[in-house]
Design a protein around this nucleic acid. Structure first.
Length: 311
DNA sequence: AAGTTGTCCAACCGCAACATT
DNA sequence: TAATGTTGCGGTTGGACAACT
């Protein structure tokens, strides 16, 4: 190990001399700096991060302020250890997206890319390594998986269109795998061309994040749109309502979520994540997930224009 | 008890993409 | 169009602390 440069949270910050006269702090943030940044952000919000650093009276570069805010101070951050459901989601999304930590983080509300990356590098990678050494499961580490054979043939690497294993999925048919991927990878396509299926949000599922995702009691993850109470229990009307939204832009979803918050509503979920299951049913039993089963889903999506879809 | 090694995670670095001038 | 600034990302490092010898 390199000889550590002494950096304490309360004193002895290392200082970087910039091209100008200003000296910038580096290293761990002190509580005082956190307070300054937090109160500045709460009052003004961030515009240009260099201005934030300057105006908040911090001897930090904008980049450092941005990082501190995103990874630590942001009020919507979840604290504490990852739940088993979150672990499964990370595994799932990593098998789809590889080391695209920011995209994975975007699907795990309250978690940061850094947090997920650290978690992956410390915990999951190790666990997968040991599990792969004593089983035939071929785990995917995107840093190398792009070049691996797909021994199990489970799942796809969406970006390379190459099969890589997703060992914790319930083994959906190839067409369903493809559908899942098409729905998971941004950008979200328009509803009618996408293969999204609309379902009422079953009991036991809850909206998480900013109203665009939900996590079911079985760990399944999906995107949800919300419809007015008047459309409650009417899937047809709900679908029409959602189709009338011009796009799935964040604004529309957010506005929709605002309405939901005020009025209360039936939730209409897009069935992105309803087809895989952390309980990992490999026993040939029904692949029922929550209120929905695979057969029903296959009927629902049979009309979608998917390339390799076969019923 | 003291020294060494391993682990975790906050923070930094370099780069690329994008925006602005 | 080029130069410059800003933002965001993934990889890597450094330091605190725990576990081990």
């Amino acid at each position: 190990m390199k000889k550590p440069e002494r950096v304490s949270p309360s004193a002895n910050f290392s200082v970087k001399k910039q091209s100008g006269d200003s000296k910038l702090r580096k290293g761990l943030w002190s509580p005082e700096e956190d307070d300054k940044l937090m109160s500045y952000m709460m009052n003004k919000g961030h515009g240009c991060w260099s201005d934030v650093a300057r105006n908040a009276g911090l001897q930090r570069c904008g980049k450092s302020c941005r990082l501190r805010w995103i990874n630590y101070l942001r009020p919507d951050l979840k604290r504490g250890a990852f739940s088993p459901q979150e672990e499964e989601l990370i595994l799932h999304f990593h098998s789809l997206l590889g080391n695209r930590w920011s995209q994975i983080a975007a699907r795990l509300p309250g978690r940061t890319d850094n947090e997920i990356k650290n978690f992956w590098n410390s915990t999951i990678k190790k666990r997968l390594k040991s599990s792969s050494s004593d089983s035939s499961l071929n785990v995917s580490d995107s840093s190398s998986s792009d070049h691996k054979d797909a021994n199990t043939g489970r799942g796809f690497n969406a970006l390379l269109h190459e099969q890589v294993p997703i060992p914790f999925l319930l083994d959906p048919a190839p067409a369903v795998q493809s559908l899942i991927l098409d729905c998971m990878i941004d950008p979200i396509p328009p509803l009618e061309q996408s293969g999204y299926t609309i379902q009422t949000l079953p009991q036991g599922k809850e909206i998480i994040g900013e109203g665009t995702e939900y996590l079911g009691e079985y760990g399944e993850f999906g995107e949800a749109l919300l419809v007015p109470p008047s459309l409650e229990n009417n899937l047809h009307e709900s679908k029409a309502y959602i189709n009338n939204l011009n796009t799935f832009s964040g604004n529309n979803i957010d506005n929709n979520y605002d309405n939901f918050s005020k009025l209360g509503s039936t939730c209409v979920g897009i069935g992105v994540g309803n087809f895989w299951n952390i309980n990992n049913n490999h026993n040939g039993e029904d692949t029922k997930i929550g209120e929905w089963d695979l057969e029903e889903f296959m009927r629902d999506v049979s009309s979608f224009p998917f390339h390799d879809f076969q019923c």
